[in-house]
Design a protein around this nucleic acid. Structure first.
Lengths: 245, 245
DNA sequence: AAAAACAAACGTAAATATGACGTTTGTAAA
DNA sequence: TTTACAAACGTCATATTTACGTTTGTTTTT
């Protein structure tokens, strides 16, 4: 039996996945489709974030973890609670009202929004009851509720946070090349970075550790692989207090 | 008549005020006191943040603005929604349960926490129905509910944010000296900064504008006054994308 | 087997920023 | 007039960033 829900509080999750092949920062979205009873008219046909109500006996973090697990099977992924959305009209677009009629849903629901950082390759989008699909964050489809706003605010937070914290590595495999790290930064920030300067900067960080391994199965020169050492990073108490406003 | 409340959602406000005289970053707290019926036993005697339930027809931002205004009379102050707190047990300390008996309060309330940045001098702590008092953020009194946690998380957010955004000026008067800016940084970050280097750095920013004015009523050499130009800052699209993880 | 293609990796010089200090200046109070 | 002292200015060494050119090690093509 399902635990008791808090009817007016939900958690919505912006699942960011980096696709190392297409070098694209993607968001995992769920299809929302509803036709009229005679099936002649399409009432709702768009996408939404994955989310669910908070249970009476769980923390907000637990809700987020549960929501991600239900959709992807994944646990232990990086997550951040970045903002709550509670405008009285946030579920009041015409399509949303139609949709909500079919769901057990409170019209004045406040949602606590999280984002996750993971690798697209870790998610099997077909192995889910829901129709889930990856979209580049720069090319989102039509979105229901206020979910476009939520995604864009998550993206803004990620852009800022990736400059000062080593969360970028959550989007990459444990073993990565310097250029892959650069690809992630470029995708997130939407900028070009000089490879020679970036490489030097990264290699000089003590918490970026060269492995005895190279890429395999690539044409052209295979890249040296590195790992990120959280231990070393933490020990460097890397709050460097550089004021750069 | 009071608008209808959402019983299980509140907004709590961490009101940060910088005291330019004592050079202290303070938090505005409200006394919570309850004696037993025979007045012989003190049941609750501590402090809490200012906060209130969200009304059915208002946004979360509006709630925060209202809460600040009710306590201080102030409007148009810098605010940031930084986190929601919704643990099932967050109002379950013995004192909190006693307290809640006397209030119209839902035991499983999720709170959306904001912090405000302003000047202590702008607040008249005596001109309020509630017993409000400033405490240095480094020397907090006993706190009710989970408010200690909320304050510390707000403080952490502020520490990080002040390094990359010019929010520091929200804690200072419109006209300020270089050393006053330094005082704010030192108070927030808990570090010593070399005055000569800091001064050089700040003066070189194009959005720090020297005024035709000096401090008055000080012994010793009066300091040159400056202002912060948000216009210039914004035009410099100062997202400088300096990766400094 | 040699050559071509090309990403990976290395290198260099100038400009800018930072960190660690010493020195001078302007004002009110002694 | 002198003193005290915060405000303001200056200097040098080092570190970081920016903007490029060059070499190296693979696989694929000839």
């Amino acid at each position: 039996m399902e635990p008791e829900k808090i009817l007016n509080i939900s958690v919505d999750c912006v699942v960011f996945g980096f696709d190392i092949n297409t070098k694209s920062l993607n968001v995992l979205l769920i299809k929302r489709f509803l036709a009229s009873e005679n099936k002649e008219e399409i009432l709702v046909d768009d996408y939404v974030l994955t989310g669910y109500h908070v249970y009476k006996e769980e923390t907000l973090d637990e809700t987020a973890t549960r929501v991600l697990k239900e959709l992807t099977g994944l646990t232990n992924q990086y997550k951040k609670q970045f903002k709550a959305f509670g405008n009285p009209d946030r579920l009041m677009n015409p399509k949303d009202i139609i949709w909500i009629k079919n769901e057990a849903f409170h019209l004045r629901t406040t949602t606590i929004a999280y984002y996750f950082l993971l690798k697209t390759e870790d998610v099997d989008v077909n192995n889910s009851k829901k129709q889930a699909k990856w979209f580049p964050v720069t090319n989102l489809p039509e979105l229901g509720f206020d979910h476009k706003k939520i995604i864009l605010e998550a993206y803004e937070d990620l852009k800022i946070k990736c400059l000062s914290e080593p969360i970028i590595f959550k989007l990459l495999p444990d073993k990565f090349s310097i250029n892959e790290v650069q690809d992630v930064y470029q995708s997130i920030l939407g900028i070009e970075i000089d490879n020679r300067n970036f490489r030097r900067k990264l290699i000089n960080k003590k918490y970026i550790i060269a492995l005895d391994e190279k890429q395999v199965g690539v044409s052209k020169k295979p890249a040296q692989l590195y790992m990120f050492s959280k231990d070393i990073y933490d020990k460097m108490f890397s709050k460097n207090y550089l004021i750069s406003m």
